[in-house]
């Protein structure tokens, strides 16, 4: 069925999506919570930045990231000076790129789910001696659980489906940065249509399953573009 190289590409994809999703949740929860509750005048600006990857061509995003993370770039040079391994054409570079690229797919459902939590319940919890973190863990997270699942599913699925950003900052190094979408491109480039078909089918089946899971849930947790 799938060649060893294809399996390796799929496995890399899963590792990348898993790592990026974990980072996205860690970043997305405080960010989503802040956006859900703040009345800061910076909110629209931050929301715009978060939503930008929805509309920008991935190549634009990938290009900027390449410039930013490259050895001469502002982030890349500092990283090198601190003794870090090169970020471009590496797994960690891919993770960083994926985080930026998939941010709206995680932050928006989290923000929606957090907004739907009745602030009155948090007051009630505070009056029952629950501190801020306690309230977040005992009230917000359980009530926002469907939104959390949506965020994880969409974040993961979106990283699996990315192409442009990965190509720009990851290149196409087998076992290190050649993810499934790139492998399919390579197969088509080499006119190996049968292999392209098989690998594509795996991604189609996965994506349908992931989206079905999202759309079967109540609309409020979905990101704005999916309602």
């Amino acid at each position: 069925m799938l060649s060893a190289a294809d399996v390796s590409a799929l496995w890399l994809t899963v590792r990348l999506a898993g790592t990026a999703t974990a980072c996205l949740m860690l970043l997305g929860m405080p960010l989503g919570w802040w956006l859900a509750r703040t009345s800061s005048r910076w909110k629209p600006a931050i929301e715009t930045l978060v939503a930008l990857p929805l509309v920008l061509p991935p190549t634009v995003l990938g290009f900027y990231l390449l410039m930013l993370l490259g050895p001469q770039g502002p982030v890349g040079s500092v990283w090198r000076a601190l003794g870090g391994a090169p970020l471009v054409f590496s797994f960690s570079g891919l993770v960083l790129g994926s985080i930026v690229y998939s941010l709206p797919f995680v932050v928006q459902p989290l923000q929606n789910a957090f907004q739907a939590v009745d602030a009155g319940l948090l007051e009630a919890a505070a009056a029952l001696r629950a501190g801020p973190l306690d309230r977040f863990g005992a009230i917000v997270l359980p009530l926002a659980r469907p939104g959390l699942l949506t965020a994880v599913t969409l974040g993961f699925a979106h990283v699996v489906g990315e192409f442009g950003v990965v190509l720009m900052i990851g290149g196409d190094i087998p076992g290190r940065t050649r993810v499934a979408s790139i492998a399919i491109f390579d197969h088509v480039d080499a006119l190996a249509y049968a292999r392209a078909y098989r690998l594509s089918a795996v991604l189609v089946i996965f994506s349908v399953a992931a989206l079905l899971a999202v759309y079967s849930r109540r609309p409020v947790d979905r990101p704005r573009w999916a309602r």
């Binding site: 007051e123 505070a126 629950a130 801020p132 306690d134």
Partner: peptide, 8 residues
Amino acid sequence: VHKRPLGY
């Protein structure tokens, strides 16, 4: 609030 011994 959460450090005040009150009921609401």
